[in-house]
């Protein structure tokens, strides 16, 4: 009896990181969406970028428990970096542009994270907010470089791999964004299932005990924060390349808030919460804006309130509850 329990336990850990068949679902849906809704690919690309951004937040919020209201800082740095590389640097190749966007955001993430991750709770929350506001003010002030309030123009992006330009229907950028998302997802998934990822969960669950067992907590947090910032920067870079235009709202508090809502809506600390949350949020935003351009935020707010009040763990948490009840009944 004890031996089987031990064997089961070992078996669980040995197999936990393996891909499950159900994990193919979001990718099948993303490909299917291309063929079913070919006219909605512009929206589809927005959804994919939002998922990358939300995924980057899930890594720090859902896994390491870092609550931030300023994650747009890194999205914005990535967007401006990719934009300025083309507008001022004359470098128009998109893939290296994304790498550059990610690298710039990583540097800002590392430096800001080094300082602010020494704090926690409300202080940390305010500092993350302050970093984003600071970045936005800097972007506004550095008008020569960023275009300030009028936005950054003059971005021209070469065709992807020299072949696929940003076509009128957004088809090429949909596949481009999906490929970037797949890569970002793979990286996130590796990290989450690694021993380092387990340490992040430990920090989320009980940071005091982590200190007591000898974990270099600050180093772990700065590491994951930098990776997360890089991913957010890639999302921002993609956004800039897609629109060939960057305005100050890439750094806006509303964007930090929106990505937070997405991940809470979908479910934190579960990888696929970002997929569900970002998709539902972006489509809902789009549909509600069509119905009522002035009051769409009310609808989004209502959905969030209902989710937080009645469903712990977001929409995926709800799905877990419903499906486990169904399995119990059929068993």
């Amino acid at each position: 009896m004890t031996d089987t329990a031990a064997a089961n336990a070992v078996d669980y850990l040995l197999k936990r990181h393996r891909f499950r068949p159900s994990e193919a679902l979001p990718w099948v849906l993303a490909v299917a969406a291309f063929f079913v809704f070919p006219d909605y690919m512009a929206l589809g690309t927005q959804v994919l970028i939002a998922i990358i951004f939300a995924l980057s937040l899930d890594l720090i919020l859902g896994y390491a428990g870092i609550v931030t209201l300023g994650h747009a800082a890194y999205f914005g740095v990535g967007a401006y970096a990719a934009g300025m590389l083309s507008a001022h640097g004359g470098w128009n190749e998109p893939l290296t542009g994304l790498v550059f966007a990610g690298a710039c955001a990583a540097i800002v993430g590392f430096l800001s994270g080094w300082v602010l991750l020494r704090y926690h709770g409300l202080t940390l929350l305010m500092l993350t907010l302050a970093v984003a506001i600071l970045m936005q003010e800097m972007a506004n002030a550095a008008e020569i470089w960023t275009g300030g309030f009028d936005g950054l123009t003059g971005i021209t992006i070469d065709p992807i791999l020299g072949m696929f330009d940003n076509d009128l229907w957004g088809h090429h950028y949909y596949w481009y964004s999906l490929a970037v998302l797949a890569l970002m997802f793979y990286v996130t998934r590796r990290i989450v299932y690694s021993p380092f990822g387990q340490a992040l969960v430990g920090i989320r669950e009980n940071v005091g005990r982590m200190h007591a067992i000898g974990s270099p907590v600050h180093r772990r947090l700065v590491t994951v924060y930098t990776i997360s910032a890089a991913m957010a920067g890639v999302a921002g870079g993609l956004f800039a390349q897609l629109n060939a235009f960057v305005t100050l709202d890439v750094l806006d508090f509303a964007r930090s808030g929106a990505v937070m809502i997405m991940i809470i809506l979908g479910g934190t600390g579960r990888l696929y919460g970002a997929f569900v949350g970002a998709t539902v949020f972006t489509i809902l935003e789009d549909e509600l804006a069509k119905i009522s351009p002035e009051f769409w935020e009310f609808g989004v707010g209502l959905v969030l309130v209902l989710t937080v009040m009645f469903v712990q763990g977001g929409l995926l948490g709800l799905w877990d509850k419903v499906s486990s009840r169904w399995i119990k009944r059929s068993a």
Partner: peptide
């Protein structure tokens, strides 16, 4: 996992972020 975490922090396994914990 509680116990694994304690052991893995001691051995330095927790520095690995690309290899599955399994």
């Amino acid at each position: 996992e509680n116990v694994c975490l304690s052991i893995a922090e001691r051995t330095g396994d927790c520095n690995a972020l690309w290899r599955p914990a399994g």
